[in-house]
Design a protein around this nucleic acid. Structure first.
Lengths: 200, 200
DNA sequence: TCGTCGAGGTGACAATTGTCAGCGCGCCTG
DNA sequence: CAGGCGCGCTGACAATTGTCACCTCGACGA
């Protein structure tokens, strides 16, 4: 019997997946969580075989949870299930010790089979992503990432400069190089593409 | 027996919802669709009691489908099920003749009950939205919307001016008034908030 | 029919954003 | 240990973006 904790922020989807998995004869959902913190608590409490988690959730993301679990060193395996075919996400997931990564675009059968294979000790990665992760290494420096994150909030150069104790020119310069690396024509386009590739 | 067509672009979610609804004794899913065009075709073919559809799908959106169905004038009722608590979406849904609007954040039970109530001739609207739609009427003019849409693609003033045969100053001016109306500090923030409220 | 109001449109000017050349520092590598 | 390279950082200059005062036209109410 595979004991599973399911983390997913949309209640309706969470409920549907939970019921469906529970219908499988070899799977039992021991707890569900609506955000990252609940997920961590549920894993600590139930010590499931597998944590099945979304990435984008309020507060702590699924990737944060995976990282934390790998740091704590329990035996729970993490299987990511997400909407986003973002190369950067997969890469970060791998670094966070995740053993499986499936897309919500795939049929449900794939979720169940991934769950079984992960439990059996295999690694599972959505085929459309196995490639993607390769050719798209994050070219941004930590500082550039930081600035781009500020940009997504709508902050101006002056705002960012004040917040990070930088000269305004420096801010402009970082964003300029980020734009060059990303092939963007302005700060917003740069921030958008960085986010879309999971580099943010 | 309530005959339902289900349209939703994420295969895994679509499958889960379909199985779950089919488990209900008084509901049968006669077809599923992965985008707006398939949804229209399925409705034409099966003439279901209710079309249960997501909004954001590739190609034709759920709102487009609802509008088209209301134009064609069949008896199929449209129940929207979406992630987004965007006032503008609800408003547009109402104009498109939609009779129900539920959020994926709500528990599954609510979906089933909404389905039954819609079938019984009631109108159903997610409570957190009933309010939202009221106080947020779209203040943008068609021209402003058009320009903001261009902004989301990353186009510069010069690009937009060329594409719409306007002076560059005019473009700046429209975006400026749009920014004022939306309380945004720059074009991108304006475009983002307009999109977030379903006005784009 | 006159005023005025909102939407489309414009150019001049101000502010913000993007580019460039360059400096210092630490870290490799030959 | 002498380059050379990448990263963090900066200011001066250029280009783009935002603000403002203003014009036209059609709709609508007084």
């Amino acid at each position: 019997m595979i004991r599973v904790v399911l983390a997913e922020d949309q209640a309706m989807v969470r409920g549907a997946f939970a019921q469906l998995l529970d219908l499988q004869p070899d799977v039992t959902v021991v707890a569900t969580a609506g955000d990252g913190d609940e997920a961590l608590a549920a894993v600590a409490l139930h010590r499931p075989d597998v944590l099945l988690t979304d990435i984008e959730m309020p507060g702590r993301t699924g990737l944060d949870v995976a990282q934390e679990l790998s740091r704590l060193g329990g035996s729970t395996k993490v299987l990511i299930i997400t909407t986003f075919a973002r190369g950067g996400y997969l890469r970060r997931a791998m670094n966070a010790g995740v053993v499986g990564y499936v897309l919500k675009d795939a049929p449900i059968a794939e979720l169940v089979s991934a769950l079984r294979r992960v439990h059996a000790g295999e690694r599972v990665v959505a085929p459309e992503l196995a490639m993607a992760a390769w050719d798209s290494a994050d070219p941004l420096t930590p500082r550039e990432r930081e600035l781009l994150r500020e940009v997504t909030t709508g902050a101006s150069n002056a705002d960012i400069a004040a917040r990070l104790n930088l000269a305004e020119g420096t801010v402009r310069n970082y964003l300029s190089t980020a734009m060059a690396k990303l092939g963007a024509r302005n700060r917003s386009e740069a921030a958008n593409t960085a986010r879309d590739r999971g580099w943010l």
